[in-house]
Design a protein around this nucleic acid. Structure first.
Lengths: 191, 191
DNA sequence: ACGTCTGTTCAAGAAAATTTGAACAAACTG
DNA sequence: CAGTTTGTTCAAATTTTCTTGAACAGACGT
């Protein structure tokens, strides 16, 4: 009694013809999102909602993507947290309905603002802290080691300059202003 | 007999005073690299090399970061593959020496070119393929479903437009030319 | 107030990745 | 050419991350 196989068969039969195209798109976005550091399912769920003219329930989503209700709840919650999905309700219906935030540009900005900028700032802080630490030890060292530490200090300055250029660049992106990648290049070059 | 503790103590004693700052920087870069989808150790190894005035051996690297030789070999190999680290040799010395490629800008470009662009292109292809599939089924559907499929098709056009704008944007980045993020924004707006 | 429906949380189990030591291969030395 | 040294590869073991089903909590209708 191949329960799983039968179930799969039933599903295939009852699926609309466009389901395959829908899943293919969802998977493509899932890969993008996963690469971008999010859960794979977040991209898939968002896409299903984005492609649907009407808000959908967790039940429908779970069925389409063959996910457990807890998996759906978890990833949807995170999507809501990022503002990528909104809850809505229907008069008379008890279930929650979800719809995709459809401005991808808005979403990109929000993520870069909340996440990537923080990450870069932490790196900048770490480099600065390391430099401070080097400066402290400098007086305790012999000539040979002192030159070594000075070298490190200079290199850390370059990493700092680069990170700061990166931060500036992301801030411009978020603001929708023109970006000049040559800034990154030159951040690295000046003595 | 706290072997591990003793070993750790020995290490601490024999470390130069600037080792802590060095590790702190390496870890910061490790986090950045990990977030960016590379092995955590790649960022750490690269940083140690970047901060060193002289090329280093796998043995030194393994000792500093407390890694097994195989871990070092693996991650260094990948760094070499990405052009982030170069092998060099010293007359008389049998061991390989490694030095960091110090132009971060060059590295960024290479990665975006080889990796991110591919990823985006795959997504673009998937969306296009899905649209084609929808067009094929359209004639088989009733009026209600046809409207549904048309909606999906329109949405996929938007995803395609966005992805293509993203691809263009990355290509400009790689080329070091000016970027206008507003292109992304408008890719989404035109019906 | 009770039973039902819905959504979330959590701990256990499954899957995926990283890490390691050992085996292998290659290059050099005496 | 035998014996080292060095570097890579591989499968096993570990760690981490994901997934799941069950337990819990809240809201609703009767």
């Amino acid at each position: 009694m191949p329960t799983a196989a039968v179930k799969q068969q039933d599903l295939n039969d009852s699926q609309p013809l466009w389901r395959e195209a829908e899943l293919k798109s969802a998977d493509a976005m899932g890969r993008l999102m996963e690469f971008w550091g999010f859960r794979r399912h977040m991209g898939r769920l968002w896409t299903i909602l984005y492609l649907s003219p009407d808000p959908m329930t967790t039940t429908e989503l779970a069925e389409i993507l063959q996910l457990s209700s807890s998996a759906v709840s978890l990833s949807l919650g995170e999507l809501v947290h990022w503002g990528a999905v909104r809850k809505t309700w229907r008069p008379g219906e008890r279930k929650d309905f979800y719809q995709a935030e459809s401005s991808v540009w808005k979403l990109l900005r929000r993520v870069y603002e909340r996440r990537e900028l923080n990450l870069i700032r932490e790196a900048i802080d770490a480099f600065g802290e390391a430099q401070r630490q080097l400066a402290e030890t400098r007086s305790l060292l012999g000539q040979e080691e002192r030159r070594r530490v000075d070298y490190m200090h200079k290199r850390l300055s370059r990493l700092s300059a680069l990170s700061k250029a990166g931060e500036r660049l992301v801030r411009l992106l978020v603001a929708g202003r023109m970006i000049n990648p040559a800034d990154l290049q030159s951040a690295e070059e000046e003595e």
